[in-house]
């Protein structure tokens, strides 16, 4: 499906979604609460069939966090970007690791790097950071490590 067709389809599925212009791929902004049902539809709808989550990350905008999901369909060869604004002090979003298995590791990475709490994640533990690391999330903009960090 082309970007226009996707836009029509997604407006049907989720009228509350807003679209962002300018990107290479169709980019939609959604509320974190809408994410889980939408994800299930993305994965299971035959005309969408987004079965390949190729990137999952988070951006710290200092005022809020944005989760970014890049989805692709191996069958239809179309791509989509989903963004969801999270509260910076208490970021929470439903996990999608049961829909796309690769999300399990990527969500763990985002959990420790940005402190996003993924609800119902099967195994939300530190993956990269050493055991006993608490609180500070390295990829947030306000993170400072006076000992180890080299400012370039």
């Amino acid at each position: 499906m082309s970007n226009e067709e996707l836009k029509v389809k997604i407006t049907e599925l989720l009228p509350a979604a807003t679209f962002e212009e300018g990107g290479e791929w169709l980019t939609i902004n959604i509320d974190p609460k809408d994410w889980l049902p939408l994800a299930q539809q993305f994965r299971n709808d035959d005309s969408l069939y987004f079965d390949y989550l190729f990137c999952l990350t988070c951006i710290d905008w200092k005022t809020h966090l944005t989760m970014v999901y890049h989805l692709s369909s191996v069958k239809h060869r179309h791509n989509i970007v989903i963004k969801s604004k999270l509260d910076r002090s208490n970021p929470e979003i439903e996990t999608i690791s049961h829909i796309w298995k690769t999300a399990e590791f990527h969500e763990r990475e985002v959990y420790e790097m940005f402190g996003v709490n993924f609800l119902n994640h099967p195994d939300l533990r530190l993956l990269i950071l050493p055991d006993g690391w608490e609180g500070r999330n390295p990829l947030r903009k306000d993170f400072e490590d006076t000992i180890n960090m080299i400012k370039l």
């Binding site: 990137c55 990350t57 990475e109």
Partner: peptide, 15 residues
């Protein structure tokens, strides 16, 4: 402002 590298090894390891 932010760079993300989607590395192939990370996903391949998860399998």
């Amino acid at each position: 402002y932010r760079i993300k590298f989607r590395s192939p090894g990370f996903s391949n390891l998860s399998v």
